[in-house]
């Protein structure tokens, strides 16, 4: 019995979709357009998030040991630093590596200058990354308490503004995304309401012949949910292809800068799932709320 009427509701819902051709199309278009906008916002937001994560992960602290300490002694301190809570990784740069790097940094013209030094004046350096990039300064302070460490370069002068900018970007993104989402909800539920309003006579008749509210509601729900899901699938597929194309022509990096874009696979999964779920929820919820209005006595 239940199966019988359930399959009826699905058939009716699908049939109504065709019968109400233009109204369905209007609601469908509203979903497609708004979810396309949400999808584009998502595209930007995901990449901004990716970039800020990338930038934050570049943060590191250089700790210069006392100049008289040897590489071997440096290794002991490296172990000590590794055990500090909040430290993700420590890389030891030996005196020799330091010199070599300085050489390459100075370039061939001036590299020869270093040859005149005789003994290597550079200290052993520990390059430390924090578990959470936001704790970088905290970790740097901890390093300063180790007596064998002569000085610490924590980059505080640019770490603080960096995080301030990242926070602002993230907040603006979240607000925009929320605004887009609310617009979508509003537009879609309005369109569905208009579509159902044009059929209030139909609903009235159904009630007169003794249909229960649930029986009346089901085909409408099927109908509006189908509109929502199809309406979500179209921009999802379109954006997937668009992103793949953008990724290919940009080589996977943000134009001109060395920021890696979020990978195509991740994008496809996230955006497709997000838009389909959004379409489903919006269609179901919009249909539910609109029919409910006409089922009141």
């Amino acid at each position: 019995m239940i199966i019988n009427s359930l399959s009826r509701h699905f058939k009716e819902g699908a049939k109504n979709l065709i019968r109400n051709g233009w109204m369905s199309f209007a609601a469908f278009s509203a979903v497609v357009v708004t979810l396309a906008i949400v999808g584009v916002s998502l595209l930007v937001a995901l990449n901004v998030q990716q970039m800020s994560k990338y930038v934050a992960n570049q943060l590191e602290v250089s700790a210069y040991l006392q100049q008289n300490l040897s590489n071997a002694e440096g290794q002991k301190i490296e172990m000590q630093v590794e055990n500090i809570p909040g430290v993700k990784s420590v890389v030891l740069e030996t005196k020799q590596q330091g010199l070599k790097q300085l050489e390459t940094e100075l370039g061939p013209q001036y590299g020869d200058l270093l040859k005149g030094l005789g003994t290597n004046p550079l200290p052993v350096t520990l390059i430390v990354k924090a578990d959470n990039p936001r704790d970088t300064l905290q970790v740097a302070n901890n390093l300063k308490t180790i007596p064998q460490i002569a000085s610490v370069n924590d980059g505080a002068e640019y770490v603080r503004p960096l995080f301030r900018v990242l926070d602002i970007v993230r907040n603006i993104g979240a607000v925009l995304l929320l605004a887009m989402f609310l617009t979508a909800v509003f537009l879609i539920s309005n369109t569905i309401r208009i579509a159902i309003f044009s059929r209030r006579r139909e609903i009235e008749i159904m009630r007169l012949v003794g249909a229960t509210n649930g029986f009346i509601r089901m085909p409408f729900l099927v109908e509006s949910t189908l509109i929502g899901v199809f309406g979500g699938a179209v921009p999802a597929v379109a954006l997937d292809f668009l992103y793949q194309y953008l990724y290919q022509i940009s080589g996977g990096y943000f134009y001109g800068i060395h920021f890696p874009l979020i990978s195509v696979n991740w994008f496809v999964i996230k955006v497709t799932v997000a838009l389909l779920v959004l379409g489903f929820v919006l269609g179901f919820w919009g249909g539910f709320m609109s029919v409910r209005k006409f089922l009141r006595i």
Binding site: E204, I205, R207, L208, G210, T212, F215
Partner: peptide, 18 residues
């Protein structure tokens, strides 16, 4: 209410067909 209506047949001036 639907159960009451199922025990009654109603006919209107304007037919009220779907």
């Amino acid at each position: 209410i639907p159960y009451l209506r199922r025990s009654i047949g109603v006919v209107f001036q304007d037919f009220k067909l779907l």
